[in-house]
Design a protein around this nucleic acid. Structure first.
Ligand code: FES
Ligand code: FES
Lengths: 143, 143
DNA sequence: AGAAAAAAAGAGTTGAATCTCTTTATTTCT
DNA sequence: AGAAATAAAGAGATTCAACTCTTTTTTTCT
């Protein structure tokens, strides 16, 4: 796939926290990892990273856990991808060793080009807020 | 990416042989690997696999190398994918741990669905013959 | 027959992503 | 103050694709 597993884990966990940490309550790592079926130590590292980058807040100790901050709702998928993967894996040609180059399309380039545009746009447009709405309306699912 | 590097190598090498092995002449492993910039020992394994599955023919010894057979021109990209990757990596959800399921779309499912259909169709439709035509017409490139 | 050329086969290395285990630091509650 | 809960940090294990190196087999040519 063009996303790492880490990215999927990060997006789902962030959306999960956004859904369940309203009114000051926090969501524990264990709770997230069990609900979303993600190895919890591994998720721990990812959460640290998200907190470090200001996507979420965390608190240690009893009743500790993860919660949203002012920015969370407006975080775009592309920001999370930047944190987890560094870059979108669609820059290199799907079947080549070189960079994808529209002036020198490979055998599957044209099948990919339109999709790539859709995906880039989607990632840089959709926010956590938008995702939670979809989830609440039952239009998409976290697990 | 959703294709392995091996798949890209296999498709490009097969197309290369189809282009340059006409009228009984064979193409050597070294020649292919140098032209397409593929590690030659690694390509050797891939070629063996293609020969074993009847995609190409090979001959050892001086003037040995790889050549097409009756089937080669009609081989579909999906057949090569089957040999190299076993299956298309679009079956599992792009951000989940589970299988992709249209009845339970994840947060990016809809962005992917249309593309997936295009790609599956393209893979199961396009043949080596078609690729060589595109290459000859300068409409696509191998490297 | 013997040498050389080439693919085939076998076995090992590497690096990155993913996952696991253990220890530490921080916070809360009694 | 001390115990318990919880995230953070460190360090290591596992896995797999990708790659490399060496040896064997087959074929051709002199
Ligand atoms: S994907 Fe191959 S050139 Fe663009
Ligand atoms: S890609 Fe996630 S459910 Fe289809």
């Amino acid at each position: 796939m063009f996303f790492s597993k880490t990215f999927g884990y990060a997006v789902r966990a962030t959306a999960f926290v956004a859904l369940y940490s309203e009114n000051e309550s926090r969501v524990g790592l264990r709770e997230i990892s069990e609900a979303l079926d993600i190895p919890h130590h591994f998720l721990g590292k990812i959460m640290q990273d998200l907190v470090r980058h200001g996507v979420l807040e965390s608190m240690k100790g009893p009743h500790g856990g993860f919660s949203v901050n002012e920015r969370t709702a407006d975080i775009k998928l592309s920001e999370i991808l930047q944190i987890t993967d560094g870059t979108l894996a669609l820059e290199t040609c799907a079947i080549g060793v070189r960079k994808c180059n529209p002036d020198r399309p490979c055998l599957v380039h044209n099948d990919l080009a339109a999709f790539k545009a859709v995906m880039v746009r989607s990632l840089s447009t959709r926010t956590i807020h938008e995702l939670t709405i979809q989830l609440k309306e039952g239009k998409s699912f976290l697990f």
